[in-house]
Amino acid sequence: MGRWEPNAKGRLREAALDLYVERGFEQTTVAEIAARAGLTARTFFRHFPDKREVLFAGSTDLERHMVDALVGAPEAASPMTAVGVALDAAAAALGGNRDFARRRHLVITANGELQERELIKMTRLSAALAGGLGRRGVAEADARLAAEAGIAVLRVAFERWVTGPEERDLAEVMRESVDRLRSLTR
């Protein structure tokens, strides 16, 4: 394999995404991903349980960032304002690499199994946000509604950000989407 190079996990993610875009998710093997990254399949499995998780490895961190932000929102904040703080945290976590996000989005939208996995991730995020709102004293039904609305904003804003032609910041698109939701409910 040659001399050791740092950031094996990052190299594996980039190699996998490149191959998924070039050949398709189903047609790409773990061995090919590892070879493209200059690593072994064994190294791949030290970082990811399967090739699907290359695309979802950050889900737990995203959930933690969002819930921490929501719980840490000012005490007087309404449930939707607290969800807005969580969306700001999501934008900070997801908005750093638009090219990666675009390619990841293309791969996921081209594969039904990956779309299903993405929906599961969103359902878990919603449940975690609702739980955080519950810890803030929000009634369960209201917490679930606010969390689901927040996840809808996240999905719509993220898709607008990755598919839009203009180079805007994800946080800006997210806040604009929250404002649009507020105007729709007036």
Results as ranks from 00 to 15, higher is better:
Glu116Asp: 14
Arg3Asp: 15
Ala128Tyr: 10
Glu113Met: 09
Val71Asp: 06
Ala128Lys: 03
Pro49Gln: 02
Leu39Asp: 02
Ala69Asp: 10
Arg135Leu: 12
Phe158Tyr: 15
Arg13Cys: 07
Ala76Asp: 11
Leu17Phe: 07
Arg135Met: 06
Gly150Phe: 00
Thr60Val: 14
Pro165His: 15
Thr163Lys: 08
Met122Lys: 08
Leu87Trp: 00
Val67Ala: 12
Arg46Trp: 13
Thr123Met: 12
Ile120Trp: 13
Phe48Asp: 06
Glu116Asn: 14
Leu170Ala: 12
Leu145His: 14
Asp61Lys: 14
Ala41Arg: 07
Arg124Met: 09
Ala130Glu: 01
Arg182Gly: 11
Gly84Phe: 04
Val153Tyr: 06
Gln27Ser: 13
Arg3Gln: 15
Glu22Tyr: 09
Thr109Val: 05
Arg52Phe: 03
Arg117His: 11
Leu17Met: 13
Glu26Thr: 09
Leu12Asn: 04
Gly38Tyr: 00
Leu125Asn: 06
Leu181Asn: 02
Ala157Met: 13
Glu140Ala: 13
Leu119Tyr: 07
Val153Gln: 02
Glu159Cys: 09
Gly10Phe: 03
Leu181Ile: 05
Pro49Asp: 00
Ser126Cys: 06
Leu119Cys: 06
Val54Lys: 04
Arg102Ala: 01
Gly84Glu: 13
Glu63Tyr: 03
Val83His: 00
Ala91Trp: 04
Val85Asp: 07
Trp161Cys: 04
Arg46Pro: 04
Ile120Asp: 14
Trp4Glu: 15
Asp61Phe: 14
Val178Cys: 06
Asn111Leu: 02
Gly164His: 08
Arg180Ala: 15
Pro165Cys: 15
Leu87Tyr: 02
Arg180Tyr: 10
Arg168Cys: 07
Val156Asn: 12
Arg155Ala: 14
Leu114Val: 01
His65Arg: 15
Val83Asp: 00
Asn111Gly: 00
Asp99Lys: 03
Val107Arg: 03
Ala143Trp: 03
Trp161Ile: 05
